[in-house]
Simulated assay, not measured.
Amino acid sequence: MPTLVLLRHGQSQWNLENRFTGWVDVDLTAEGEAQARKGGELIQSAGIELDEAFTSVQTRAIRTCNLALDAARQSFVPVTKDWRLNERHYGGLTGLNKAETAAKHGEAQVTIWRRSYDIPPPELAPGGEYDFSKDRRYAGKDLPSTESLATTLVRVLPYWEAAIAPRLSAGETILVAAHGNSLRAIVKHLFNVPDAEIVHVEIPTGNPLVIELDLGLKPVAVRYLDESRAESLPAIG
Rank of each mutant, 00 (worst) to 15 (best):
I48W: 09
I48T: 06
R63W: 02
V57Q: 14
T64S: 15
A46S: 14
T64C: 01
L69I: 05
V57W: 02
Q58D: 05
A46Q: 05
E49T: 12
L42I: 03
E41N: 04
R60Q: 11
L42K: 09
Q58V: 06
A53M: 08
L69N: 03
Q44V: 00
I43T: 07
S45M: 08
A61K: 11
E49H: 11
I62N: 03
A46N: 01
L50F: 04
R73C: 13
L67E: 07
Q44D: 13
I62R: 13
L50G: 11
S45I: 00
T55I: 08
G47T: 11
S45W: 00
C65E: 12
R73F: 05
A71V: 07
N66C: 09
E49C: 08
F54L: 05
Q44N: 12
E49I: 11
Q44G: 14
F54E: 08
L69A: 07
L67Y: 09
L69M: 06
E52V: 15
S45L: 10
E49W: 03
A68I: 10
T59A: 12
E41P: 00
D51N: 14
L69P: 01
F54Y: 15
V57N: 08
R63P: 00
L69D: 11
A46W: 00
Q44K: 13
T55Y: 03
R63Y: 01
L67P: 09
A46F: 01
V57G: 06
T55H: 03
A68M: 06
Q44C: 06
T55K: 00
A46D: 12
E52Q: 13
R73D: 13
T59Y: 03
E41C: 02
I43E: 09
R73G: 09
A72Y: 08
L69F: 04
N66A: 05
I43S: 00
Q44I: 00
R60V: 04
R73S: 14
E52T: 05
A46I: 02
T55V: 07
V57A: 08
D51I: 02
D70I: 12
I62T: 04
L50P: 06
V57C: 13
L50I: 01
C65G: 12
A71E: 12
R63K: 15
I48N: 01
V57M: 10
L42P: 05
E41F: 00
E49L: 11
R63I: 10
F54R: 06
A61H: 11
S56R: 11
D51P: 02
A61Q: 09
A53V: 08
I62A: 05
D51V: 01
I43K: 00
F54W: 15
R60N: 11
C65T: 15
N66I: 04
Q44F: 04
L50M: 07
A71K: 06
E41D: 12
D51G: 15
I48G: 03
Q44Y: 09
A53D: 08
S56G: 04
A61W: 13
R63L: 13
G47W: 04
